[in-house]
Amino acid sequence: MAPSLEAPEPVEDVLSNPLKSAPKLVAPEPEHCPGPESETAGKADSCAGCPNQAICASAPKGPDPDIPAITARLSGIKHKVLILSGKGGVGKSTFTTLLAHAFATNPDSTVGIMDTDICGPSIPKMMGVEEETIHVSGAGWSPVWVLENLGVMSVQFMLPNRNDAVIWRGPKKNGLIKQFLKDVEWGEMDFLLVDTPPGTSDEHLSVNSFLKESGVDGAVMVTTPQEVALLDVRKEIDFCRKAGIKVLGIVENMSGFVCPKCTHQSEIFQATTGGGRALAKEMNIPFLGAVPLDPRIGMACDYGESFFDAWPDSPACTALRGVVRRVGEEMGLKPETVLPED
């Protein structure tokens, strides 16, 4: 086969049916095969006489039957926001926890975080609830409550030992994400933040298709300033466009570092191509702000504390408050209800 990505699997089909797996074929796919997963599988002209015809024709097609149950379960949630980035380690989870803490400062709001990073869940540690387990009641699984109005769900709560590796292929990961949406008793909530792993694969496809019916407000893209990161974020924006997810805007994390000794500002991850701001402009999406690199944010995450409570006067905190307000604005909310001024 020549090196080419001309997909035998059309992107639209992958996007609309993320859980469908290919039927087991008894013979190689013939020339002009419509694809064993396509809508016309087993029915196209080229299928006549193919030994796989009956298998392909009887494979399940169409939308997932569990989607109405998910939509019903999530009907009490007002706003759903995805936190995305093509790149790992740029601060998706950190930003998710900060956004959640910020939304939760308003005692009238209830906030939930769903951690869909199955192989590398970080939310429980950052929230200081790593040792918790899930309680199951008649109504479903209960999220782990960090504050009275801030609940979390993650695969970490289901592991017998905290260092256990979750060695799962795609379909199994999709199954768990479905359970998080279908079986967790989220209840009445103002915000559900969905933290994701890096990339554009199974987890993203399933989150998108499961939430499509119940409606997503949009996605916040997190990046760091250097082009190596922006390159992957570009791919994620491309994914959002293809999947029809609104991009609320780009946040640039780890943007500049002020030396604690001489207060000289260094660009550790240099924005050689203009950073998040230039990418936002290029892609025609809002730029939500830049958050400087502050070692105390990392420390707060390691100890499971809220950075907002621990260092309310730091420049990073001020920048983050600005970003949170901008996220609210892009969602069509009034800044003072999202994050009241002190």
């Binding site: 086969m1 090196p3 080419s4 990505l5 699997e9 992107v11 992958v14 996007l15 993320p18 797996s21 290919a22 093509g86 292929r169 795609g170 379909p171 554009t200 694969s201 199974d202 993203h204 496809l205 390159l231 570009r234 791919k235 994620e236 924006i237 491309d238 994914f239 293809k242």
Partner: peptide, 24 residues
Amino acid sequence: GFLLRERGDAVVWRGPKKTAMVRQ
């Protein structure tokens, strides 16, 4: 990256496709 038409193109692949590519 060397197989993509545009550098910003997303590769939206499920597990089995990724497995096939790794094998290849």
